[in-house]
Amino acid sequence: METLLSSLRITVATMVLCVGGYTGVVWAIGRAVAPDLAEGSLITAPDGTIVGSRQVAQAFTQPQYFWSRPSAVDYNAAGAGGSNKSPTSRDLTDRAKETVAAYGATPENPLPAELAAASGAGLDPHITERAALYQAERIARARQLPVDRINQLIDRSAFSPGGVLTPDRLVNVLEMNLALDNAAAP
């Protein structure tokens, strides 16, 4: 009986402090100091509609846009997930064949592996710099721009996520595509 009573008292105390107090403090700090990040890093268009989240990949299929990495959940940000296929799986080979065809990759111009491999959550917002450069020509053709303009944009946007610890530079696909559209707008 005493055990039950003490257990209940500790339950109440931990609920109040760890669920109520702790959550409240973290929420209040987020709201006060980094409201944009705390709300999910949303990007809004000038008319107020939400275009997406800076941190969440979205589907790009049209030739004038940079394409995101493949997504096993078709970029569903309300039910994310990976393929969970073994790297030896035939299913992965079949899926990669479609990706190879979409990019028109050839043995002379092989597809960067990161564009064939699906990410863990299916929402990876980044591609590598070389994967972006790989797509530059298609985008230039679709937008009737010199390919140098695209390459310059890539070079300006690329960043090292971990400084010296990550040699491969990345670009954010959604931000690059927004930049492309903005440059095209009159």
């Binding site: 990976g82 990161e114 491999a117 699906a118 990410s119 863990g120 959550a121 996520p161 491969d168 990345l170």
Partner: peptide, 8 residues
């Protein structure tokens, strides 16, 4: 496969 690029 199943990895995120930003972590290295």
């Amino acid at each position: 496969e199943g990895k995120e690029l930003r972590f290295g």
